[in-house]
Amino acid sequence: PPPQNNQPVEFNHAINYVNKIKNRFQGQPDIYKAFLEILHTYQKEQRNAKEAGGNYTPALTEQEVYTQVARLFKNQEDLLSEFGQFLPDA
């Protein structure tokens, strides 16, 4: 089995990143909310695809997730490039 040691690192990275976004968009809760929505849609699509066992193409690809987040985080290059570190196929 693959080593699990990286898991806490990924988890901490995710916590720090979510915090950074929350702080950055403190005065613009709609942007933060839209970001959460993109993530949840992506997760739902991934789950659907998994359950369909290859018979379902996710409506939201990694590329589209990235594009949507880029539109949302315009002028926030650091947040966007950090987001790219999370995406499986960025």
Binding site: P2, E10, A14, I15, N19, F35, L36, Y42, D89
Partner: peptide
Amino acid sequence: SYDFTPLDSSAVYVLSSMARQRRTSLS
């Protein structure tokens, strides 16, 4: 200090599972 709502926590969950998936697909 972390003031996380359940929504925040689920975002953290999605992001970390994305990162995990990325790691396994890269290795």
